[in-house]
């Protein structure tokens, strides 16, 4: 099962490693990197809503919209 999923398809509470980030917005990619969200780093989705989800990156919790979550491949 080495299929690529994005954060929206992640199971709640399971920690995954980021494989790729592509928001098509280089500044956004760099911003995520500086929060500690980049290839090889662990991420966990703790809750999902219709249009957004809460993601744990490093020791912080962030609310992000699904558009952004889709761009994070795990």
């Amino acid at each position: 099962m080495e299929e690529n999923k994005n954060l929206l398809q992640a199971d709640l509470g399971v920690t995954y490693n980021v494989k790729k980030i592509d928001t098509e917005d280089p500044d956004m990619n760099s911003f995520l990197l500086r929060l500690g969200c980049y290839e090889g780093e662990p991420v966990t989705v703790v809750s999902k809503k219709k249009k957004s989800c809460v993601v744990v990156i490093k020791e912080g919790r962030y609310s992000m919209d699904n558009l952004l979550a889709e761009a994070i491949i795990i």
């Binding site: 928001t23 917005d25 956004m28 912080g60 962030y62 992000m64 952004l68």
Partner: peptide, 9 residues
């Protein structure tokens, strides 16, 4: 235009 939202809780 893609407008992303991310905010720390």
């Amino acid at each position: 235009r893609k407008s992303f939202f991310i905010m720390e809780f």
